[in-house]
Amino acid sequence: MSEPVTILVDADACPVKDEIYRVAERHGAHVRVVSNQVFRVPVSERVKRVTVSDAFDAADDWIAEHASPSTLVVTGDILLADRALKAGATVLAHTGKPFDAASIGSAIATRAIMADLRAGMDGPLGGTGGGPAPFRKEDRSRFLQALERELVRLSRAQAAER
């Protein structure tokens, strides 16, 4: 019998942890909340906190090492998304946007262009401003729909393997 789907959460900047816990419970999925700081997690056999060192990219490294075809990774980090995809994982941004083989290359290229632009500018997009757009109610709703869809898909795929 195969293991349940596991959701690996890049938790340090994740605004949808509570939603993940609720949906995972309904689907019987395991959750690993990975960060370099301590977060409160629900008391559950299925939800575990993984606190890594504060070394650069330690949480990303842990997630990438544990990503597999039976995992769903939730992250806003494009480079981590790429690593997880290469390990066969399903990857969602906290806005519900799926990362896949078709979209990750352009996302990485856009990230690099924006970094170059910010490095050469003063003002709101330069060194002191910018950042992601504010997280909205629509983003939360889109994430919940995407999480539900992907957990159903992964569960069916595992059932088909049995």
Rank of each mutant, 00 (worst) to 15 (best):
V43A: 14
L92R: 05
G129F: 06
D116K: 15
A115Y: 07
D60K: 01
K48I: 00
A64L: 01
S155K: 11
A89Y: 06
H30K: 15
G129Y: 06
I108C: 10
A107H: 13
G130Y: 04
A59R: 01
G130F: 08
V38I: 11
K86L: 11
S53G: 12
T90M: 09
A119W: 00
P124W: 00
P124Q: 01
G120F: 00
D18F: 01
S103T: 15
D54A: 09
K48R: 15
V38F: 10
D139L: 09
V41P: 02
E25R: 11
V47K: 02
A13P: 09
G96L: 05
T110C: 00
S103Y: 03
W62Q: 05
A133K: 15
T95Y: 12
I7P: 09
A102K: 11
K17N: 07
A24T: 04
Q145E: 15
A115F: 02
H94L: 02
I63H: 03
D12I: 06
D61A: 12
R118G: 05
G96E: 10
R111V: 05
I63V: 11
S155Y: 01
V52Q: 09
P42K: 07
V34Y: 02
D54V: 01
G129D: 05
S44P: 13
R49W: 05
T51Y: 04
A58P: 04
A24Q: 03
T128M: 10
A59F: 02
A84M: 10
P42G: 06
T51D: 12
Q37W: 01
I104T: 11
N36M: 01
L92S: 03
H30T: 07
